[in-house]
């Protein structure tokens, strides 16, 4: 089966700063992958490229067999037009560290907006789906609240409902608990765990919660200085790392002998 995500030799620099320096990664559909590594190692940049918020400087990036930035036309590869980019982009959804809810819309309308404008669902259907998604994240009673009146945990739940309502094939989670108060983290992680256990979506999760990465993912990828240092089953990464850098990182976070 073709991988739903395929990267080959992907490089990305911001100005002088080389953030990704040759990434090869294939993710089969339905897999839950946790991406770990020190700050600035390129984890978030990887997600930005997968979400097509940025484009790679070099290398191949394919979502479900298609490159978002190039298209075949008259038998040759051409720069993609807006329509092609959006067709590929529609297969991916993302939840951000800082939620990025639309502050001028209620929770319900945050979820409904893209259902109406992108999927062009009829209003009643969009509202039904949005309410259903909000209930699924435990916020049925907050549908009419504006983001300013929600707690961090509630905002992140709305953001998750908003992304899930679009039914993407791939969901990206960029440190989605980092901006939350500690007591709210558990609930969000439980929600993630519930999603990943259904195996219906491919999930790429950038996280600092090693225990979560270990217990909830099929696979863990360790990033450092813009390259994938190690890629394997959670047990292997956390308990028998093959690389010294992985060992030091895992030890530093979990403590030795953890």
């Amino acid at each position: 089966m073709n991988p739903i995500i395929r990267l080959r030799g992907v490089h990305k620099a911001y100005g002088e700063l080389a953030v990704l320096r040759g990434i090869d990664l294939e993710v089969p559909a339905g897999q839950t992958v946790s991406v770990i590594g020190p700050s600035g190692s390129g984890k978030s940049t990887l997600l930005r490229l997968l979400m097509t918020l940025d484009r790679p400087d070099q290398g191949v990036l394919e979502i479900d067999g298609e490159s978002p930035w190039t298209m075949e036309k008259n038998g040759s590869q051409q720069p993609a037009d807006e329509r092609h980019l959006r067709q590929v982009r529609g297969k991916v959804g993302m939840v951000f560290q800082h939620f990025n809810l639309f502050p001028h819309m209620s929770a319900l309308h945050n979820v409904m907006e893209a259902l109406l404008r992108v999927l062009r669902l009829p209003r009643t259907e969009a509202e039904a789906r949005a309410r259903e998604r909000l209930s699924a994240v435990g916020l049925a009673d907050k549908a009419d609240a504006y983001p300013a009146h929600l707690s961090g945990g509630q905002k992140q739940r709305v953001a998750i409902a908003r992304a899930l309502a679009m039914q993407p094939k791939v969901m990206l989670f960029d440190e989605i608990t980092s901006a939350l108060d500690p007591e709210l983290v558990g609930g969000i992680l439980a929600l993630l765990h519930e999603m990943s256990s259904k195996r219906t979506m491919t999930m790429v999760i950038v996280t600092h919660h090693m225990r979560f990465a270990e217990s909830c993912s099929d696979r863990v990828v360790f990033f450092d200085e813009g390259v994938i240092v190690e890629d394997g089953a959670p047990k292997a990464i956390f308990h028998e790392p093959r690389h010294e850098r992985t060992r030091r990182f895992v030890d530093a976070i979990l403590g030795p002998e953890a």
Binding site: M51, L53, G93, F96, L101, A114, V118, A163, M166
Partner: peptide
């Protein structure tokens, strides 16, 4: 970015 991620 949120708008892009929702494919608007």
């Amino acid at each position: 970015e949120a708008a892009s991620a929702l494919n608007l």
